[in-house]
Write a protein that binds this DNA or RNA. Sequence first.
DNA 1: CCACGGATGAAACTTACTTTCACGAGCCGC
DNA 2: GCGGCTCGTGAAAGTAAGTTTCATCCGTGG
Lengths: 304, 304
Amino acid sequence: MAKSPKISASHEPGGLIVHISGLLPSLSPAEQRVARLVVSDPADAARRTITDLATAAETSEATVIRFCRSVGMDGYPQLRIRLAAEAARRVEPPDARVVGGDIPPGADLAQIIATIAFNDARAVEETAEQLDPAVCERVVDAIVAAGRIEVYGAGASGFVASDFQQKLHRIGRTAFYFPDVHTALTSAALLGKGDVAVGISHTGTTSDVIEVLEQARARGASTVALTNSPRSPITEVADFVLTTAARETTYRSGAMASRLAQLTVVDVLFVGVAARNRARARKALEATAEAVQSHRVGSGRRRA
Amino acid sequence: MAKSPKISASHEPGGLIVHISGLLPSLSPAEQRVARLVVSDPADAARRTITDLATAAETSEATVIRFCRSVGMDGYPQLRIRLAAEAARRVEPPDARVVGGDIPPGADLAQIIATIAFNDARAVEETAEQLDPAVCERVVDAIVAAGRIEVYGAGASGFVASDFQQKLHRIGRTAFYFPDVHTALTSAALLGKGDVAVGISHTGTTSDVIEVLEQARARGASTVALTNSPRSPITEVADFVLTTAARETTYRSGAMASRLAQLTVVDVLFVGVAARNRARARKALEATAEAVQSHRVGSGRRRA
DNA sequence: CCACGGATGAAACTTACTTTCACGAGCCGC
DNA sequence: GCGGCTCGTGAAAGTAAGTTTCATCCGTGG
């Protein structure tokens, strides 16, 4: 099979299910139907024959096979076995919790809290499970060695980009974030070999971010994509691809779990970079903390 | 299909492998060869095709089928799946999870990932557990009824404030966020009864935020504090206090888990508000999503 | 409007699984 | 010792599952 030349996590160690949900948006409609069945009840899918599954997904066997290939399996039997193994491993409590689902119309606040927390926590955990330490390592290498780092993101991902920029900055790395595309583009044009550009896009289809990343790459900078869709367009302009694993219910919910997943990855990179030079990072952190000290009342301690 | 009339093996409870080794002696020689292969490496057996397994056991496919029936399976595919599940279950992960701890100096990326994800997920879950739905409800009431909403936050909490503002805005609430204290102060001075001011501060001691919240309160606005310290100064100027439960790890001030906890609370409020008027919120969300559509490439899909 | 490319299912095809059947070894009873 | 019997066995036939091919359909961009 054609190996992608870029470094991305093609392994799905964390879990096949998570891997599939990540790929879901990159699948064709018919394949998505199959994917949803599989994700919603892996054990059941493993029991079904290909014809049976195809019928349940209201499609043809051919599509099921295509789906298998899309998620990296050789064929249906392999998928079946992996699914069975996966289902067995996760002793999933038959919790009534709505996984990745929408909040029901009549829900009260307590339900809303439980649902959101559950999905948020899952997104964080699943993202961590499927993150490839090797790719992270290489990204950390690049950042540590970088002359300059730029982080791009639009909309909700913009906050994450901004957060990342600020974190890197606080430990003494030269990092920038530009909310404005034009500024970002001009800045990216000034990047060069040894610099690092990080593009954040949940869907992986944000053209502004892709464009800027492309520009950065053309100038010789190392490019990193942080997205939920391992096969989205942004991955084509990235040297390194880091994926999150948030099962977001489309725009209905706004970007909720996805932000948390992205932030978790940002934290990992941050700590990874900081760990490379503990002393220096610590000193920088202390200095910056001290700088805002006068803007705190009391000692951060309390008193009623 | 003709059901086998013979007394089939009872539900093998302990485990398929154990079950098979148990009745190994009662099998015919050729079947025993198959059984031994299966027992010695279930995962491997699951990967093989029936012909393959038959060859390895130096027997025919027919014998393998007979073996399947002997151990209580319907046929080979079922055995395969059960085997895969079994194998997966017994390969328990070397769960050396770093509980709530620090990131050790020599930690590699995999450890860092595990630690961060664990703490982040915990922060989210614990925050949800101790969130008071009644208080949330009243805050939601206030926001729904508000003429204007302002959100304040500095540093890392500023990103959260900004995120909250943007979310409220997307569902049609009039919300503001000011990165600059002076602007925030002047704006707060223009608030009045029925308006809502939300102050976000992890430590609860950020004087800028407290000051602005105080101003807002003096003008008659309802004030909400979102903090990790239930008795910190900020709570003294707040009508409603929402607390997070992040036990921030090392890399002090990195504000890692705390952000996620804050964002979870933001999500709860957001969904709570949106749920009050589903139709309108949905329409607003769709309209805003559509607005950025032209800034996306493709349909989010892509092939390798 | 047409050319193009992707998505899709029908049908042809291949492989895997299952059943049938005949052979041969052991085991009586005559 | 020799039919008749049972049982384990694999070869081969038969069926079902999985895979490939291909014509059609649909949206997209020229």
